[in-house]
Each structure stands twice: as C-alpha cells, then as structure tokens.
C-alpha cells in the first residue's frame, strides 16, 4: 500500500497535501505580504527609527531566552543524571512529584509568584523574566535528558569509579558530553518556548524597556502604531524569524524533543 504506490495514489496524496498546504500558507503569507504594504521595506526601517524601543525589546528577548536555555540545560542535565545514575533514598518520590507538577500552568501560581518577586525585589527585572519561566520548563528538559541517560547504561560510570573518579567527574567528563543529541533537543525547544512566551513578560515586566517581543506585538497594536497594521506585521515577521530559523536549521537533529516540545499548551 505504501511501498508500491500507484500513480493514482500519488496524485491523490499530493493533491490533499497541496490543499492543506494552501490553508497553512495563506495566513502566514498574508502576514509577510502585509508587512511590505505601502512603504515596502520602509515599514521595517520605520519600526526601528520611529522611537518605539524595538531594538531594546529584541535585545531583551535574546538575553532572556539565552539565559533561560543555559540555566535549563545545566540544571536539567545535573538533575537528570541524578535521577538516572545515582541511587539515594527519596529519589523516586522527588521524581514523581516533579512529573506530577509538570502539567500545571504557571498562571495558577500568579499570586505567590507576585509575592515572591516583590519579596526578592525582582519585579520588572531580567531575573524575574528568567528564573520562574525557566523553572517551569525544567522538568521537561530533565525528562528528555533522563531518558537519554537511561539508555546509556552504567559501564562508563563504573569504569570512572574504579579510576577513583566521583559522580561529578563522571557527569562532567563522560555523560554530559555524550548526551549532546538530547541536549540539542532541550536547547532548541527551550529556546523556542522562551522566545515565544507571552505570559512571562505579561506577569513580570512593567515598563516598555523590560518587555520582550511577544509583548511588543501587543504594545504596538494598542499604541499609535496600531493605526499602521503593516508596521505591526513587520514586527511579527522579525519576531518569527529566529524561532523558525532555529527550527529549520536543526530539524533533522530533533527527535523525541519535538514531541516533548509540545508539552506546553
């Protein structure tokens, strides 16, 4: 049915794909085409030169996303190694608690998060944009890396022990470097997730200078620029570029992470 495919079946398959493809392309192309309406590339230069802090917002988005990715990969890799290769009382219980809380949305903790941020004095700072959101994505990263460590066996660990190495050297020198394929998944999906996150800046940033790009779209629409939708569409295109680029560049190396990336609703 699939190996020996007839010409008729080929045509049917291709036409259905083309119809679905058109449905997907129309809304996306509408954005790109609209972003050039009127002044053409001028819409983009206007966005950067009209006084709207778009440059600052792009910078913020990069700072926040890169910091989150580094934090998530480092902490998730350490934790995943402990869950997979170190035996200690309470381990399975902690792992269970983490997987159980994984599906809870950050918005459920809005009041305690506000209080914590106020107590720490983090409101409207990079720390507020980085730490809570990274924490909520960490269990996903931990799970992806743990599955990978589980598949690696304990021989390398034992060899390292015989040579007198501890767990840390085993993780740092052997397991972490070998887990690169899984780590790539974590990096890509943590980046895309963080880059796209709208709730995080909605809750924790208070001034235009501390907003990230998803909020920029909203600020633009509700400000005087809203009267020029083509400028808003230019902002959408700029915003979409990094995450789509990262995905297209690394799509062949993305395995199970692609499905894990969908954990976020």
């Amino acid at each position: 049915m699939f190996k020996s495919i007839s010409l008729k079946e080929k045509i049917i398959i291709q036409s259905i794909l083309c119809i679905l493809g058109v449905i997907y392309i129309v809304p996306l192309a509408n954005v790109v085409v609209s972003s050039f309406k009127g002044a053409g590339i001028g819409n983009y230069t206007y966005l950067f030169t009209s006084g709207f802090p778009i440059g600052r917002m792009i910078f913020n988005s990069f700072v926040v996303s890169i910091a989150q990715v580094v934090l998530i990969v480092a902490v998730a890799s350490l934790s995943a190694f402990a869950f997979s290769k170190i035996r200690f009382p309470g381990r399975d219980l902690i792992f269970l608690l983490i997987t159980l809380t994984m599906s809870i949305s950050m918005i459920c903790f809005i009041t305690p998060l506000f209080l914590t941020m106020r107590t720490l004095g983090w409101m409207n700072s990079y720390r507020a944009l980085i730490f809570p959101a990274a924490t909520f994505w960490m269990p996903v990263g931990t799970l992806i890396l743990k599955n990978y460590y589980d598949s690696m066996g304990t021989e390398l660990l034992e060899a390292n022990m015989i040579e007198g190495g501890g767990f840390f050297t085993a993780w740092y020198r052997i397991y972490a470097p070998l887990s690169k394929p899984a780590a790539v998944n974590v990096v890509v999906f943590a980046f895309i997730n963080s880059w796209n996150d709208y709730l995080n800046p909605l809750l924790f940033s208070r001034t235009e200078e501390m907003r990230t790009l998803p909020m920029a779209v909203v600020s633009l629409t509700s400000s005087i620029y809203g009267a020029r939708p083509e400028v808003v569409f230019a902002c959408l295109v700029i915003m979409a570029l990094p995450s789509v680029f990262v995905y297209l560049l690394l799509q062949d190396q993305l395995g199970e992470g692609m499905t894990a990336g969908a954990v976020k609703g």
Binding site: L20, G21, Y24, I25, L28, V31, I192, W195, N196, D197, Y198, L213, P214, M215, V217, V218, L236, M239, A240, S243, V244, V246, Y247, L248, Q251, M258, G261, A262
Partner: peptide, 13 residues
C-alpha cells in the same frame, strides 16, 4: 516543515 512552523511561532504571532 510547513505544518510544523506554526508550532515554532509565538501565540502572539
């Protein structure tokens, strides 16, 4: 790739 691109986009977009 086309069908997956919306997954890589922000809900804001």
């Amino acid at each position: 790739a086309l069908f997956y691109i919306p997954v890589a986009l922000s809900t804001a977009v």
